[in-house]
Structure formats: structure tokens, C-alpha cells
Design a protein around this nucleic acid. Structure first.
Lengths: 240, 240
DNA sequence: TCAATAGTGTCTATGAGACACTATGAG
DNA sequence: CTCATAGTGTCTCATAGACACTATTGA
């Protein structure tokens, strides 16, 4: 690239200013069946293998590479640390507390992403990766995670607890208006399946008739019907 | 601070990774009277005095200082470059195109802020600072600014045009539901003043009776009334 | 008097919430 | 048959949009 040498030559302006380390963190969300079999809005955590906070569960994240785009850094992180591909990260917020990382001055750009349910289920047995349901306890205790963490861990490292809160709020906000903005259901689905998904995300039961009428307008009805379940065959739909 | 020496000693982890320069840019919005006297949603631009893009109009911005918080960097920028104080910046998005700045790899965290109308008017005559109304042209031409820039300038430097678009969209989104989330009206005001404000932001006329009923619910009615205008004295309100 | 405004009444269309009802298929 | 479900009908209530009307002030 011709631009690189030009960039280097004018670099002097920039050297006057201190540069923070910049990382990306990703809150990967999905809705996966509980041990009971009920759907739960969950976040994907990884067990840290690096020096700091080693052994703890945290959101996947990594430092940016030279002239990398944020979205690419997120995709690389997910590929390298969780073996997930094809997601589309969205920016959530920048975490800028200078004391958030004991190693020094580190900014983190928090991202949100969603993985289709079937892929999430397929990943569930991978070692070092876990899907943790969000805890729906009212009167949430300060300094405690929204997640019921394994191994007796109380909180997530860095400011990941706050990122989780922002991510859950954002997913809920998005799923209030649209059927499946995050693409959690792949292919076709019944209205019941979509409602169970929304109920898991919202954390409460939804009115079946109101829900149907609100969603059907935004869906494409297929000719196919689901068979083999209790009751009359349910029509299949897909998103636009 | 005890933390600093500890941070330095563990700095080695971080030195493996390249660090971008990080800047903040602010889209400062207000509603100021046009040359016609009609209210216009406007952005505050400054005339650049630094080496790069010198002489061009742009959003105020600056590089972060060591271990500074983003909000503080924005406040410092506004204080130093525009002599404005007391604002509360909100994050909009991170601009991460590696080629956005010819000098090198620079991330910019775009922010949004609003200044009360009376303060904006008082600033209007300050040299090197200008309030530019957003252009409401339908079928917006690609590669052209949303703003009618002075001195025949066509576009804003860096990716400031995109930041302006995001800022205007965000201000409009916020003012759809609430009376005055940005605190543009200081003190008390009539429903008519509030409606003129909303009309300037939305860029279209609003129904007077529907608007009154939607807003009055969210306002505190005062005992005072405005005098000296045409028509019956209008009741004054304030935000909660 | 006129123009512009305040503030309210009212009609209609829309949609959410809620309850009920019939139809359908698996076990 | 029983049960869980699909899908629709319908009633109520709240609200947006629209139009109209009276009252009140300055010019």
C-alpha cells in the first residue's frame, strides 16, 4: 500500500500523545436449553488461559492488531478463542476506566453478538467454553454478576459484569420490536418457537394471541406445516 | 497513587501489542435561530488551527491524555477549543477505519452533546466557532455533508460527516419520546416553545393538540404564565 | 376588528391486552 | 377420550391523528 510510507513520514504529530492499549470484548448471546430443558437467555464465557485472571471465566476478548478494524478484531477473537465464525458484532460501549486493568491503561470496546441456537447447542460441549444463563433474580446484589458462574466464581474480571448488563439490555431492546433481529432461529420456525424464544429473552411469559398478531405481520408465511407435535399442524414462517 | 508503580511493573504484557492513537470527537447540537429567525437544529463546528486539515471546519476533537476518561477528554476539548463548560457527553460510536486519518492509525470515539439554546446563541459570535444548520434536502448526495458549510467547503474532514449523521439520528430518536432529554430549554417554557423546538429537531411540523397532550403528561405545570405575546397568556412548564 | 394563539372537546382508526371459543392431532 | 396446541373472534381501553370550537390577547 502506498499509504503506509506516507503515514510513517507524518507520524510525528501523533507521537506527542500517549497511546492506550485497546482491546475488544464480546458478549456473545444465545438462547439455549437449560438442564430442565427450558430455554434460557445465555452468554458464552471462556476460561482464561492467559496470565491475568488466569483460570477465571470471562467474556472472550483480545488486543487489537496493527491497523485492524474493530469488527475484524472481534471476529478474530471468536475464531481463535471459541472457534465460532460468521457472526456480525455490533459496538456496545467503550470501557474507559483507567483502573479497569491492573496491567496499565487499557481501553476496551465492548461488542454484542448473537449465535443461532443450533450452533450454540453444538458448541456447548467444547472445553473451555460455557453457556451461562442470565440470572433473573429481582433486587440484584451490587458487585455480583448477572450470571450464575461455575466453580464458585462470584464476579467476572475487569468490567465484564457491566458489559453483560449492557448486552442483555440491548438484546431485550432489540427483540421487543422485531421477530428475530439477531438471527437466533435459522431457517423456518413456528410462532410457538418464536414466542418461546422471546419469552426466554424477555424473562417473562408473553400473551399468545397478542404475540402472534404482532409478529405475523412481520413474517413470511410458508406453505409448509410442522408435524409430529401435539395439536393441529403449526404453520411455518421465516423472517423477511 | 499506589497503583501506578504496580501498573508500570506489569506493563510488559501490554507491550506485545501495537497501540493506536485514540481521539475523541464531539457533535455538539443545539437549536438556534436561522437568519430568517426560524429555529434550526444545528451543529457547532470549529475552524481548525492545527497542522492537518488546517483552515477547514470540523467537529471539535482532540487526542486523549494519559489515563484520562473519555468523558473528561470531551469536556477538556470543549473547554479548550470552544470555551463551553458543564456539558454531559454521551458515547455515539467508535470510528475505526485505519485510513480515516492520514497521519496514521487513529481511533476516534465519537460523542454527542447538547447545549442549552440561550448559551448557544451567546456563543454564536465567537470567532472560530460556528453553528451550522442541518440540511434537510431529500435525496442526500453521497459524499456530501449534511451541513451547509461556510467558505464553500463541501465535506467535513475525517469521517465527521458520518458522525454528524449518527448524532442527528440520535438526537431525533431521543426527542421522539421525551420533552427535553438534552436540556435544550433552560428553566421554564411554554408548550409552544417546546413544540417549536421539537419541530426544529424533527424537521417537520407537528400536530399542536396531539403534541400538547403527549408532553403535558411528562411536564410539571407552573402557576406562572407568559405575558406580552399574541393570544391568551400561555402557561409555563418545566421538566421533571 | 383581525390575526395568532391557548386550551379543550370529540370523533375515528389503530393496536395492546385479555378472555373465549372451535378445531386438530398425538397418545 | 384427554390434553396441549393452532388460530381466530371479540370486547375494552388507551392513544395518535385529525378537525373543530371558544376564549384571550396584542396590534
Amino acid at each position: 500500500m502506498a499509504g503506509v510510507s506516507k503515514n510513517r513520514s507524518r507520524r510525528s504529530d501523533l507521537d506527542e500523545f500517549p497511546r492506550p492499549s485497546v482491546a475488544v470484548d464480546v458478549a456473545v448471546c444465545s438462547v439455549v436449553p437449560d438442564s430442565d430443558g427450558t430455554n434460557q437467555l445465555s452468554l458464552m464465557l471462556i476460561k482464561r488461559r492467559t496470565a491475568i485472571h488466569c483460570g477465571q471465566w470471562s467474556l472472550p476478548g483480545s488486543f487489537m492488531r496493527e491497523r485492524e478494524r474493530l469488527a475484524d478484531a472481534v471476529k478474530r477473537t471468536l475464531r481463535d478463542k471459541c472457534d465460532v465464525e460468521g457472526l456480525e458484532p455490533h459496538q456496545l460501549e467503550v470501557c474507559d476506566d483507567p483502573d479497569r486493568d491492573d496491567r496499565g491503561w487499557v481501553l476496551s470496546v465492548a461488542h454484542l453478538d448473537t449465535v443461532p441456537i443450533d450452533r450454540a447447542v453444538a458448541m456447548a460441549d467444547r472445553s473451555g467454553v460455557a453457556w451461562i444463563p442470565v440470572r433473573e433474580r429481582i433486587g440484584h446484589i451490587a458487585g455480583q454478576s448477572m450470571l450464575e458462574l461455575p466453580d464458585g466464581q462470584e464476579t467476572l474480571p475487569f468490567d465484564h459484569d457491566e458489559i453483560v448488563r449492557a448486552a442483555v439490555a440491548e438484546v431485550r431492546r432489540r427483540y421487543q420490536a422485531r421477530p428475530d433481529p439477531g438471527g437466533l432461529l435459522s431457517g423456518s420456525f413456528t410462532v410457538l418457537e418464536l414466542r418461546r424464544l422471546h419469552e426466554a429473552i424477555a424473562g417473562r411469559e408473553l400473551q399468545k394471541d397478542t404475540f402472534r398478531r404482532a409478529m405475523a405481520r412481520q413474517l413470511v408465511g410458508l406453505r409448509r406445516h410442522e408435524k409430529g407435535t401435539v395439536g393441529p399442524p403449526a404453520r411455518l414462517y421465516r423472517t423477511r
